[in-house]
Design a binder for these strands. Structure first.
Lengths: 95, 95
DNA sequence: TAAAAATACTCCATAGGTATTTTAT
DNA sequence: ATAAAATACCTATGGAGTATTTTTA
């Protein structure tokens, strides 16, 4: 099953093109970021990034691009969920 | 962060109105199902079910209903993701 | 009293970290 | 030589199970 937390890591890596900077941004170690990406790639059965191919940055594969598209949607929907739940928790009269 | 696997457990419990039957259906122990639901309730900061209130079944709270709505959408989108990735993995000529 | 959820407990797998190695430029 | 990702290793937390207790209809 896909893991939203790992998808978030993936998204930050995709935006920064760099595991190390993504780790700093997320507050993880670089090694944990590698772990997240490897787990996702195993889960999806395909690499998400091409390493080293262009200078010292990491670029998305085709599958990576498609995954990013869905990761954005999933994470946005997860955030919507939070908001909706918070609203539902408010006392009825104040909605 | 929300966990899709636990949301799936939640959905089955919501449909069966019964932790024990949901556990059987999912191939988990009843205790694990309780754990999933408790973790979600902790994460969301509100109970998802009212226990025991009506006969021997479990019914959704208001927050539970709203969460189910989003759980359905999230899980459907996760499934879409899988399909999209599989399609992207196919050799170009065959798409 | 019975059916179902919660809890106590145990065990193991996994997540995360640090330190090191490998890789490509 | 350097910057970055992968790996080895360790620890601790959490997930899953079994057995038991609690709950309430």
């Amino acid at each position: 099953m896909l893991d939203l937390q790992k998808l978030e890591t993936f998204r930050v890596v995709a935006l920064t093109h760099n595991f190390t900077r993504a780790a700093a941004e997320l507050g993880y170690s670089q090694s944990s970021v590698t772990g997240h990406i490897q787990a996702l790639e195993r889960e999806l059965g395909a690499p998400l990034f091409e390493r080293y191919r262009f200078s010292r940055t990491v670029v998305l594969t085709k599958v990576g691009h498609r995954t990013l598209e869905y990761a954005d949607r999933l994470l946005a929907l997860a955030e919507e969920t939070r908001v909706a739940v918070e609203r539902e928790k408010e006392p009825v009269g104040l909605v």
